[in-house]
Design a binder for these strands. Sequence first.
DNA 1: CTCCGGAGAT
DNA 2: ATCTCCGGAG
Length: 356
Amino acid sequence: MNNSPFSFSQALIKWQLVHGRHDLPWQNTTDAYRIWLSEIMLQQTQVVTVKDYYARFLKRFPDVQSLASAEQDEVLALWTGLGYYSRARNLHACARSVVADFGGEFPRTPEQLVTLKGIGASTAAAIAVFAYGYPAAILDGNVKRIIARVMGVRAPASAATDKILWQHANELLVTKADAKKLKMPHATALRIYTQGLMDLGASLCARGTPQCTACPMQTNCYARIHQLTDDIPAAKARKVSPEFKVALYVYQHAGRLWLEKRADQGIWAGLYSFPEQNRLNFADLNESEAKLQHIRHVLTHRVLYLQPHLFQLDASQARALEDTENAGQGGWFSVEDLKQVGLPKPILELTRRILE
DNA sequence: CTCCGGAGAT
DNA sequence: ATCTCCGGAG
């Protein structure tokens, strides 16, 4: 007869050892650079999407020094299609800071890690745990769902709710005593526990149809016991996104496309795209007959309808374009050139339509 | 179509 | 505290 009280962390670790993921490309290493890179890529992005990007990125930039000395355009080029491009710009800035301010080695505590660009509280904790076995709690979207369900946090998402969830996350974190009962070093227990939270949230404790009957927490989970898994976490009220029409001026000359590097703030910051205003005003500038279909692009708070206008330029028109005051940010791009810079997904798609 | 999701900026 | 960024899954 086992009379010991239920231990969330011990149950999670035992589950993780049997059912968790153990062969992800960023596991089985304590290299902070590799762990950091994976954690940044995994923000708002699923494992299956990250895998290919992670391999390509690591091949080109095997260490923090090589990344720090790269040009921003090349970093963004390797991020093309992954989304949330501020992550790539912050990643680059972070690498330069690690080299310039920390002697090329990532700091070892969440308190220091969180001072770096792109590293918030949860990512700092994940890096500290996986790289250094440091005791710190993570709280990403998966973990919020697990904790809200197990602990019965019924309030919808908000800063106040996050505060409650952080408190639970810290209280649930595997302790030295827990690790001792499992006969493993605390650092090892912390790594397995943290990966266990991620894996349980990505599998059994999914948002839609959680598989509670296979879950190690089922007899101790508030949402399961009260049949509230559909209501926890509570759905947040969504606002309707306003719609915007955006014109894209696509100039083609000698098989190349005119692209301009965007400002370092706002949508698609630092990436290359087509001008949104007509840079030329010749009377004889004829829009191509081949009408390009508009592209619908959804962001969190707005919906963009991108309407391309395609123009074939002759040599003198192309020269006039190069002479415009914005030419400093613009240039002619061949199919090969496009691989060297960052492009938003819809713009990459548009260039393919035009050039193929 | 709708829903989901960390960190930075404001 | 609230808003802004992206692409993929369902």
